[in-house]
Design a protein around this nucleic acid. Structure first.
Lengths: 186, 186
DNA sequence: ACCTTAAACGGAGTATACTCCGTTTGTCAA
DNA sequence: TTGACAAACGGAGTATACTCCGTTTAAGGT
């Protein structure tokens, strides 16, 4: 990548982070971000084809770290499957909580824009949770575990998670307990 | 409601149905709909505050019928809980299949626009599925059943359902079987 | 029949996501 | 150092969701 492009990419991410920290994402226009980054709208779109793509870029690192950390966790821990579930899902809930607005925008970049499900991140996240489900229920086949991982992600996705937290008023730990009850059949 | 308003409302619904049948929802603009209905954009928005609201109006009848029919079913059938689950969820999947595009638009009218979760329809759907879960697992408390109903809806919502059908390539009946395995712990 | 008025209408206007394309610039080989 | 060119830039332009407000009209009372 050309050096000027690299610099602009950083300027965009920095500007977006600052603006999104100051006001809600919907109230920040792409033009605002371009202006704050000191570039033209065309350049902004050259780097991030959609607003939701930009949001994805802002959370990719954190989610990728979560995935890697917990991949290692799953292969090194000696605790039982149920405890692993609580640990991994607990951390996942924490990430969703801290990045709720951004993640909602990433996942809302649909329909028409496959964004979320097409991202490499989804595949990795799904693999991680598939492993988790497999540890929990070793008798189930790979595709069945994958399905349950898909469902786990769907349950905690964008507006669904926000609904549980804000409308239903369920806390993170309550959600974890409920999910445990649903998924961990002992 | 004034008579002219009633007439316009019908004209809008008819025009929208026709246009949505001919081309995909995203390619039909609100102006297109207004023009086809022979009214101004302002009038269209007076009736339906957002495109997603209009989409909701177009599916409300069918979903409401589904809910009522299955409420009756649950109180009159004599088959076991597991068979009830298959029946109700099977029909729910069929409705999602036949109205995938519209429902995706309804449910995508977020974030910012609470649309789906705030609709009376959601409450009724949730009540129905809560009952279904309760029949399945009578020992669980009401809030726990409600949570699992929420999750059931989330699992089959908008982009999640489309992902399973189109990317994962799972058929309706396969989804039903998987959901059965996940939710019906016998 | 006529007046009143709240409700409904319509379309010009606004905001913003995203595109197009002519211009500029970093990079690299000669 | 220079020339060539792919890559990147920028901003005017387009499309469209949604708003605002002056105008019109249905409907009920007199």
């Amino acid at each position: 990548m050309r050096k000027d492009a690299q610099i602009n990419q950083q300027k965009i991410l920095t500007a977006a982070r600052q603006l999104f920290a100051a006001r809600s994402i919907e109230t920040v226009s792409m033009k605002d971000i371009a202006t704050a980054a000191g570039i033209g709208p065309g350049t902004l779109y050259r780097h991030y084809a959609h607003k939701s793509t930009l949001c994805l870029a802002l959370v990719t690192d954190r989610v990728a770290t979560f995935i890697k950390t917990n991949q290692v966790y799953l292969t090194t821990t000696s605790v039982g499957a149920a405890a692993r579930f609580d640990h991994v899902i607990g951390e996942y809930l924490a990430i969703r909580e801290h990045n709720m607005a951004l993640l909602m925008n990433v996942e809302a970049g649909e329909p028409g824009r496959r964004q979320f499900y097409q991202s490499e991140l989804y595949q990795q996240l799904c693999d991680l949770l598939t492993q988790l489900v497999h540890d929990l229920k070793p008798t189930l086949s790979k595709p069945v575990c994958e399905f349950q991982a898909d469902m786990l992600i769907a349950m905690l996705k964008g507006t669904s998670y926000a609904f549980q937290r804000q409308w239903r008023g369920r806390s993170q730990s309550e959600l974890l307990a409920q999910l445990h009850a649903l998924m961990v059949t002992e």
